[in-house]
Design a protein around this nucleic acid. Structure first.
Lengths: 156, 156
DNA sequence: TATTGACTTAAAGTTAACTTTAAGTTGTAG
DNA sequence: CTACAACTTAAAGTTAACTTTAAGTCAATA
């Protein structure tokens, strides 16, 4: 069972032009053609496409994804290097999640800030509040916004 | 105590040209100038800059950040709308974290895949493995890669 | 007061990742 | 066999977010 570029694109939720572009950039060396030159996406091609999707959604640039695909074409010689690329990407994703969680805390603080201001009818209410009025779990985000430098305690 | 654009940029870990660009785009309406036209970043400006950083790192486009800054300039009238923007961004971040976690599972599966192939010296080893050989927690990621459509069971 | 490094702006250049356009080809349905 | 929708490529266009360049100004130090 085969898919044309349009059908494959629909199944993946991307534009056909995107798949053609990826192919042109060398990300899809596994896609075969009819004698007439029409791309035929096989069932097994979607595994590669889903990995590309995964790498792209975790921020890997297309040229690095191409590098990975090139390694795949090299066969068993390149297993270690592919593993290294995967591991580096895993580390990056862990870092991204951490950073998003930190930024989420700032947004949580801002949510509280504007909820409070909305109730009071004015942002000026925050001048009347003390540290203790800030919900416990939002205080560190508040300090981050205040721009307290992460202090490094150095003892000699 | 004031900072020039270069000092502020260093403190924030960005290029001075970036801050000038943000200013030109209207993201920094709060930054004042000397008579000679030199930007003077005050301590309190850094709170705005850190919020911009937060919104940017969570994927908000600059034009939306500008919109938020414009709302801030409007004063208490715009509290509700600012709250809505913050809440929408929080939702987006929660979604981003979820998506990263899903993609992390795929990378975890690929890590196992290549670790196993590396030990065996060939990717062909995976043809000899059954579902049961795949670590429990990696099976759903594997199925995702295989591209099983999320099946909707419709009973009449 | 002269030097000098950091500042200013406007405008052009860069990069990634597509998307669109134009001109032509393929392959299926009637 | 013809029509027509969907395919093909190459090349140009788009967008966001900067960065670089060029020409000039500011302000702290010798």
């Amino acid at each position: 069972m085969f898919y044309t570029v349009g059908e494959a694109a629909k199944r993946l939720g991307v534009a056909p032009s995107t798949l053609r572009y990826y192919d042109k950039e060398g990300l899809l060396p596994f896609v075969e053609r009819t004698d007439g030159g029409i791309r035929m996406f096989k069932q097994s091609d979607f595994e590669g496409l889903r990995l590309i999707e995964c790498l792209k959604k975790t921020g890997m640039p297309l040229k690095d994804i191409k590098r990975f695909m090139d390694l795949c074409s090299l066969g068993d010689e390149s297993i270690s290097e592919r593993l290294e690329m995967i591991d580096r990407q895993r580390e990056r994703v862990l870092g991204q999640i951490e950073q998003l969680k930190e930024n989420l805390q700032i947004l949580d603080y801002k949510h509280w800030y504007y909820e409070t201001a909305k109730s009071a009818g004015t942002c000026a209410v925050h001048a009347t509040l003390t540290k203790e009025d800030i919900p416990q779990e939002l205080r560190s985000a508040r300090e981050c916004l205040e721009g307290k430098e992460a202090r490094r305690v150095v003892r000699q």
